Computed example of a mutant assay.
Amino acid sequence: MSDAARLLRLLSLLQTPREWPGSELAERLSVTTRTVRRDIDRLRDLGYPVEATMGVSGGYRLVAGKAMPPLLLDDEEAVAIAVGLRTAARQPVAGIAEASLRALAKLQQVLPPRLARRVSSLTSATAPSASSFASLVDPAQLTVIAGAVHARERVRFAYVSNDGVVSKRHVEPVQLVALGRRWYLLAFDAERDDWRIFRLDRVSEAVATGARFAARVAPGGDATQYVTQKMYESAPTYRARATLRLPVELARARLADFAGDLSALDDCSCTWHSVEDTIDYLAFRLTLLGCDFTVHEPPELVNHLRGLGERISRSVGSP
Rank of each mutant, 00 (worst) to 15 (best):
A67W: 12
P69T: 02
L71M: 13
E98A: 11
S132P: 10
A148M: 07
P69R: 00
T87E: 14
P112A: 03
S129V: 12
G65P: 01
D138F: 00
A148V: 02
L107S: 04
L111A: 02
S121D: 15
A140P: 00
V119F: 02
L85C: 08
R102G: 03
E153D: 11
Q109M: 10
R86L: 11
V79F: 07
I145T: 03
A103H: 08
A88M: 12
A97H: 09
V79S: 01
L142T: 03
P139I: 08
L72H: 02
I81L: 12
P92K: 03
A78Q: 04
S121L: 11
L107N: 05
A116K: 02
L71W: 09
V63D: 07
S100E: 12
V137E: 05
A125S: 14
G147A: 09
L85G: 08
T123H: 13
A151K: 14
S132A: 15
V144R: 06
A105H: 05
Q91K: 09
A151P: 02
V144D: 09
P113M: 00
K66V: 06
V93A: 13
L62Y: 01
A80Y: 07
E76K: 10
L104Y: 05
F133W: 11
I81F: 04
T126I: 13
L85R: 04
R114L: 02
Q109L: 13
P69V: 00
L101K: 00
V137T: 15
V79G: 01
K106H: 09
L115H: 01
P92M: 04
L136H: 15
G147W: 06
P128G: 11
L136S: 15
A134T: 10
T126D: 15
A140N: 10
I96W: 05
R152P: 00
S100N: 15
D138G: 03
R118E: 13
S120C: 05
L62E: 07
P112K: 01
A64S: 11
D138M: 01
K106C: 05
R117S: 08
A94D: 07
A130N: 12
Q91R: 12
T126W: 13
V93M: 13
D75N: 06
H150D: 13
A148L: 05
T87P: 01
A94T: 07
E76V: 06
T87R: 12
I96H: 11
A103E: 14
R102S: 12
Q141N: 13
A148K: 04
V63T: 11
A116M: 01
S120Q: 12
A116H: 03
K106E: 14
A105V: 07
Q108M: 07
S100G: 12
Q91D: 07
A89K: 05
L142Y: 03
A94V: 05
A103Q: 14
L122S: 11
L62M: 05
L142A: 10
S100L: 02
A146M: 04
V137F: 04
L122Y: 11
S100M: 08
V63E: 09
I145S: 03
A151F: 06
